[in-house]
Amino acid sequence: MKTRESVLTFSQIITLVDTLARFHLKGEAQQYLLGYFWWILEPLLYVAVFYIVFEKLLQNRQPDFLYFLMVGKLTFIWFSKSINQAANSLDGSKGLMAQLNLRKEIPPLAVIQQGFYRQFVVFGFLLIFLVFNGYAVNAAWWWLIPLILVQALLTIGVGLLAALLVCVRLDFRLLIQLATVFLLFMSGVFWDLNAITDERLRHWLMVLNPLATLIDAYRQVLMLGASPNVGKLGWVLAETLLLLFLALFAYHHLQFWVARKVVSR
């Protein structure tokens, strides 16, 4: 008889994460009348709400505010939704963990992968929308590849750590929700970070919040056709890799602890 280690190989983990993500999206879409259309509709409704409040009610002076807001909000939602869902993923896999020696990274990674699939469609829509509204495709758009890659890695690092924190105490679930709302206000989603005149303050805001740098970089590329600040992007990459290392180190050492914590909860 063919024997198997209970630990999955790397390629099996990738297959499992991807299948869990795709099946979850399929199951989710089947619950709603508008199905997969919600992938686009939900973020656009968020943009619409912010647009009405800031442009129509508060008479915002930001030029091209709709496009400015779309770039910021659509990239922010990818991060915030993935983090909040990943935070609950380990606790939500109690049944599976009670039955199976499963790598504990798999549930949060599957949730984050779902976000990648949704965001792939959202980015496609955003680019087409920008082109139809006069923003020309140019060489700077190649920067989207590293930008998306860095944001994806950042989402994985933060998502993995968020899931662990919720294992420690369920209270972190609420704190993480609050933190993403705080980030919404601190990342320049509906206001321009470059409007901060205090250069030192702006510098530290971007250093401490990699998402702010990323959103600003997306706008540089998509709206101004310019390359982002490579130095700042390098700093974000360094922070991201540090977070990823911390997350993977923690998961490596806490596999059994997570199972006991979640199953006995």
Binding site: T3, R4, G27, L96, L100, N101
Partner: peptide, 14 residues
């Protein structure tokens, strides 16, 4: 390899 024989492992009703 050692594992539990579980009914409905990871099943989703949808």
């Amino acid at each position: 390899s050692v594992s539990m024989l579980s009914l409905g492992l990871g099943f989703r009703p949808d």
